[in-house]
Amino acid sequence: MVERSGGAVPESDARTPRERYRAQVRDEVKRHAWEQIATAGASALSLNAIAKRMGMSGPALYRYFANRDELITELVRDAYRSLADTFQARAQAGADLADLARALRGWALDDPQRYLLVYGTPVPGYQAPPDTAQIASEMMAILLDAAAAVEVSAADAVATPLGEHLADRRAWAGGHPAPVPALRRALAFWTRLHGVLSLELAGHFTGMGFDPARLYAAEVDTLTGR
């Protein structure tokens, strides 16, 4: 997992002192960036403001990140990698679809700004790097494995317009051999649970008088056939 903060350098680290120092500075920049995002949002991210907080000049900081978009890209990659590693660890421990749903919610609530950076409103003028699609495909493969393990009910087996559509359009699934009911279930998992989380973390349930955790749990039960 990629951590935001720098830790102790292991004895086996083969990097030069200069390389280790560069990594430490980049980690510190990212910590300040997350603080900025939590305060004012990703659109207001400013390398010059971070440089001032660190006691550096703007040009000096640009030796570590060429521009704002490069910094955002690092944060986005770290966020995607963190969630993918969370899913991978749960899958290796034998997690089912409900376990993965709980892992997703726990990861989102642990750091809402990290979640909203990758699944919230896009940053104006910013384009996510192509390699994040590969990380996303790792997560989808884990979800499809778990969805395929759910027992297919009589209702699931009934042909639907969406199922027929997905049967011939599997590119988003990365060639995974999951049957159509599993494709539908995994896609519903990703869209419906992210929908609940996005509304909750953006504060849209505030004042409505119900517990979003119960809504999320009910969606999970529906998706897993419980």
Rank of each mutant, 00 (worst) to 15 (best):
R102I: 13
A167G: 07
A103D: 10
A155H: 10
P124M: 00
P129K: 04
V158H: 15
G58W: 12
L61A: 00
Q36P: 14
P129G: 03
L166R: 02
A178H: 08
P10N: 00
R105Y: 05
T206H: 10
R22K: 12
M140Y: 11
L215R: 00
V2D: 03
A51I: 02
P10M: 05
V2L: 02
S153G: 12
R214S: 05
A186Q: 14
S137A: 08
E19G: 07
D221L: 05
W34I: 08
V123M: 01
L75I: 09
P161W: 01
D131C: 00
D156W: 08
R226K: 13
A136Q: 11
L100M: 09
E164Q: 13
L201H: 01
M140C: 11
T16V: 03
R214M: 10
A149M: 06
A218V: 05
M208E: 11
A60E: 11
E138C: 07
D168W: 05
P17C: 02
R184C: 14
P212N: 06
A40Q: 12
D111R: 10
S12H: 10
D145Q: 07
A155C: 05
D96M: 00
R214I: 08
A66C: 06
A38M: 09
L197Y: 01
L162F: 13
E11M: 13
T191W: 14
Q88C: 09
A14F: 13
G106V: 00
R26T: 14
R114A: 03
A49I: 06
G195E: 01
A167S: 15
G195Q: 05
L215T: 08
E164V: 13
E151C: 07
A188D: 15
L61M: 07
R192W: 09
D85V: 07
D110L: 09
A155L: 14
L201G: 08
D168R: 06
E219L: 03
A173W: 09
R53V: 00
R226H: 14
R15C: 07
D131G: 01
R169H: 15
Q92L: 11
V76Y: 00
R68D: 09
G207E: 10
A182K: 05
V29Q: 06
D13L: 05
A171T: 14
A159K: 10
A173I: 12
L197K: 00
P17K: 02
A66T: 13
M139Y: 05
A149E: 14
A167L: 06
R26E: 15
Y64A: 03
Y119V: 02
E219Y: 02
T222H: 07
P129C: 02
H32G: 06
R31T: 15
D168Y: 07
A167V: 12
L144K: 00
T39G: 11
A79W: 00
N48R: 04
L47D: 03
S43F: 01
R31Q: 14
G207C: 11
L75W: 02
A133I: 15
V180D: 04
R18W: 13
R26W: 14
R90I: 15
M208W: 07
G7N: 00
D78W: 01
S153T: 11
P130D: 05
I142Y: 05
D99Q: 01
R185W: 15
R53A: 05
E70Q: 08
